[in-house]
Design a protein around this nucleic acid. Structure first.
Length: 826
RNA sequence: GCGAGAGUGGCGGAAUUGGCAGACGCACUAGACUUAGGAUCUAGCGGGUAAAACCGUGGGGGUUCGAGUCCCCCCUCUCGCACCA
């Protein structure tokens, strides 16, 4: 064994061996329990960053741990390879997106291999490969057949910088989730997935996801935003239907005006021939020009204008004015709201501003409220007043009664509304999976037949600096024949949102080479659900909700048995430096490649796991890395010492009368096994698992230096073996090298995870604490398991205790065996 | 404003069931080895004191023999949502 820890040689050696023998290849084995360990696949930007290192190091610990525990472990890796950066690079450097992407993949694959992550590389997928996106397109066709994919015109989010539309989920605070540009509204015809049809299931299943962080579930719940209420139909004087959604149908007698969203198509109808028409048009123009953030901020001043039209309240026949106002959104409910100022704070503010009447219809039991006296709305439950036949009912009763009445009159029904919108999946971009549809003058929208898939993305394209997709201008690609009538037709030139590609990759991993179908039912059912999914919190809504939706659809299509894809979810924290997320613009990026070159992959992995628990943010520390490097060097020196001095004697059996030091080391060994096992399996606290290993190394080092090698042999062997086995998931290369150098058999990674011996943990003696009035005054070493009486006696026998209790009255003595004695004196 | 989470040495963080606060690591200090030390080893390392006492887990109160941990009130920070009818 070399005296010096040559990490570079060690890591390269084992990486080559593992690759050659395909150490981490896995297949289905119904005899064994399975563990599907998945890390979110990366966008191939070209270089690994520390967030990746953290993500994959966490996953690799679990994968290796469960493998050693006898599981068939599926641990795959692939590439979320479509997306805009490839196009930007193409424009900037004149490299085709495909080449740029594949070069990046090659680089990053090399870096991952240098990290020593235990992937089954035979299962690698890349979403930009025709063998993959063929099936993405196939899914689109299945969705289309089921009516879950459809095209419609609507007001959509447009990112001027990305030159494409975005899904609602990809707009964060009015800005593009990707590039942070302010998003605009455009009226366009686009493809959607009908995710709203699954809103209830997506919501209902959330409580079942017990292995998910609470906050992710809350975020999804808020995003889906279910509210129960009623749909009611009002009519304008000239006969237009005004459908509203309300969560408070009980307040319908309190309606004193109606409000319609400025963008609502009905506005034009209502103001026709009205003297206010021009004024209203100008108002609409002004409001719609505002960006969404200002428009929807809670503190934006409510503004409105009377349309000149009136509506009739179907419940009491009252005639109320119809207004247009900025606080009503076209995108939620019906875009029309009944104004009940007495019981809704927004309506109240609006009514006060424009002098509209405030009519109280709900009051606290036994009290009277007067609309003109109110200083704010009364939104709480109460008893109905001024509401005709419904007077005297409670809010709850009235909601039911009014809804029922509306049904009888044929003017409404109970309704559930969602904040969730359908998923806009078209992108006006080139580097994505083409939507497999053609437009025929005769037949209209025609899906491409399954046997014609994939619709290949032409790779020989030229980019203009304008940022526009070159697909639309590629006439030879756009022009095609209609699969239905054979006549001339034009291809859809939009591609799919990359989140579509990433919504099913975890299923493809189970059968990545299948050319007949996206994946085999038996294989996917063997592996799914993913037992542990690991990734960043930024996907709490986006990817994680889309993937759940996709899995449900696949379930309904009979493609997979499960409805929920991810049993346990771990959201890792950010890697920061100087308190900020690492980013090029901040100039605080630490390159993993540099760390691996300078200290090795084992050190990099160890540091990133040791510095903080996985869910928390992790502050990068160059000195912390040094510390971990020093630790691995200590492990190496320890192994070297053991190899030269103890190993010749370690194959005998341990004497039955071990010295106290030897016993203590055995205890430490087994305690370490216990702690590391529990920290990995039950708590994901890799930082404390590593500190336990450090403690073992410290004890072992001390023992080896002091003990007689002949006596120490077997005990040291046991400790060393446990150390290497427990260290293997964290620092796989050095563990493997020392394992083999010390003459242990086979690969450390093929060995069973060690079990601790409870007998070795038992101590003959324990140190207990003697407290007086709750303060520690003395420590005593007593036989383990001593009785309460014995402990009390021993405590009072101690000099210090006698001194301090002398002349005082002992009021109470609390004895906790093997822990403490607390003497209360007064 | 609403919801979730957090607040412990100079720093990252431990403390799993209410029972020795600060494991482990970093930084720092002293010493050893050395031509040298940014290597390695030994010792120390919350504040305070000559040593003790004493003080100490964001602040205040409470329960308890005993509270970082449980309860109530408050402060600060982070994240999410925010005119959703």
């Amino acid at each position: 064994m070399h005296q010096k820890y040559a990490f570079k040689a060690v890591e390269e050696k084992w990486q080559q061996i593992w690759e050659k023998v395909k150490a981490f290849k896995v297949t289905e084995d119904p005899e064994k329990p399975k563990f599907y360990c998945l890390e979110m696949f990366p966008y191939p930007s070209g270089k690994l960053h520390m967030g990746h290192v953290r993500n994959y190091s966490i996953g690799d610990v679990l994968a290796r741990f469960y493998r050693m525990n006898g599981y068939q472990v599926l641990h795959p890796m692939g590439w979320d390879a479509f997306g805009l950066p490839a196009e930007n690079a193409a424009i900037k450097n004149n490299i085709p997106p495909a080449k740029w992407t594949w070069d990046n993949i090659a680089n990053m694959r090399e870096q991952l291999k240098r990290m020593g992550i235990s992937y089954d590389w035979d299962r690698e997928v890349a979403s930009c490969h025709p063998n993959y996106y063929k099936w993405t397109q196939w899914f689109f066709l299945q969705f289309f057949k089921k009516g879950l994919a459809y095209k419609k015109a609507s007001h959509v989010n447009w990112c001027p910088s990305c030159a494409t539309v975005l899904a609602n989920e990809q707009v964060v605070g009015g800005h593009c989730e990707r590039c942070d540009t302010k998003v605009e509204k455009r009226s366009l015809e686009q493809w959607f997935f009908r995710i709203t049809e699954y809103a209830d299931r997506l919501l209902a299943n959330l409580p079942k996801l017990t292995g998910w962080p609470e906050r992710v579930k809350v975020m999804q719940e808020n995003w889906i935003g279910r509210s129960k209420g009623a749909g009611l139909v009002f009519k304008s004087e000239d006969g237009h239907e005004l459908r509203v959604f309300t969560t408070r149908p009980d307040t319908v007698f309190g309606v004193t005006y109606m409000v319609i969203a400025p963008e609502h198509p009905l506005v034009e109808e209502l103001i026709k021939d009205k003297p206010q028409a021009e004024e209203v048009r100008e108002f609409v123009k002004r409001v719609t020009a505002q960006d969404d953030i200002t428009r929807t901020a809670a503190d934006t001043e409510k503004e409105g204008i009377f349309t000149g039209a009136y509506a009739i309240n179907p419940f009491n026949g009252e005639k109320v004015p119809i207004w247009v106002a900025n606080y009503v959104l076209l995108g939620y409910g019906t875009g029309i709201v009944m104004g009940v100022p007495a019981h809704d704070q927004r309506d109240f503010e609006f009514a006060r501003k424009y002098g509209l009447p405030v009519k109280v219809v709900v009051a606290p039991p036994g009290e009277t409220l007067r609309g003109e006296d109110l200083e704010e709305a009364f939104p709480a439950d109460g008893v109905l007043v001024n509401s005709g036949e419904f007077n005297g009912l409670s809010t709850k009763e009235a909601i039911a009664a009014v809804t029922k009445k509306a049904e009888e009159l044929g003017i409404g029904q109970a309704e559930v509304n969602y904040r969730l919108r359908d998923w806009l999946i078209s992108r006006q971009r080139y580097w994505g999976a083409p939507i497999p549809v053609v437009y025929c003058d005769k037949c209209g929208i025609v899906p491409v037949p399954e046997e014609d898939l994939p619709v290949l993305l032409p790779e020989d394209v030229r980019f203009k600096p304008s940022g526009q997709s070159p697909l639309a201008e590629l006439e030879e690609w756009v022009q095609t024949t209609c699969p239905s009538c054979g006549g001339p037709a034009r291809r859809e030139t939009d591609t799919m949102d990359t989140f579509v590609c990433s919504s099913w990759y975890f299923m493809r991993y189970t059968d990545p080479k299948n050319s007949e179908k996206p994946f085999d039912r038996e294989k996917v059912d063997y592996w799914l659900p993913v037992d542990q999914y690991i990734g960043g919190i930024e996907h709490a809504i986006l990817h994680l909700m889309y993937a759940r939706f996709f899995t449900m659809v696949c379930h309904d299509l009979g493609l997979v048995g499960v409805e929920e894809p991810f049993t346990n979810l771990l959201t890792q924290g950010m890697v920061t430096k100087d308190g900020f997320k690492m980013s090029k613009s901040k100039g605080n990026v630490v390159d993993p490649g540099y760390i691996i070159d300078s200290y090795g992959a084992d050190t990099a992995r160890l540091f990133i796991l040791f510095a903080a628990p996985p869910e928390k943010d992790l502050e990068w520390s160059d000195q912390g890395v040094e510390g971990c490097f020093r630790f691995l060097n200590r492990v190496w020196r320890l192994a070297y010492d053991v190899d030269t001095r103890v190993r010749p004697y370690w194959d005998g059996t341990a004497p039955s009368n071990l010295s106290n030091d030897a016993k203590e080391l055995r205890r430490k060994t087994h305690e370490t096994i216990k702690r590391v096992t529990e920290d990995i399996k039950e708590r994901f606290n890799f930082n404390t698992a590593i500190s336990a290993l450090m403690e073992l190394v410290n004890s072992l080092g001390k023992y080896v230096a002091e003990a007689d090698p002949k006596e120490a042999g077997p005990v040291v062997k046991e400790a060393m073996e446990a150390l290497l086995l427990c260290l293997a998931p964290f620092a796989p290369h050095i563990s493997e090298e020392i394992w083999s150098e010390l003459g242990f058999e086979g690969s450390v990674h093929d060995r069973s995870w060690p079990e601790y011996d409870p007998a070795a943990l038992v101590q003959d003696e324990v140190e207990i604490v003697i407290q007086i009035n709750g303060k520690v005054r003395e420590r005593l070493v007593v036989p383990k398991g001593a009785s309460k009486e014995e402990l009390e006696k021993a405590a009072f026998a101690a000099n210090k205790v006698q001194e301090l209790t002398n002349g005082k009255q002992v009021r109470k003595v609390i004895v906790v065996p093997d822990k403490l004695v607390n003497i209360v004196v007064g």
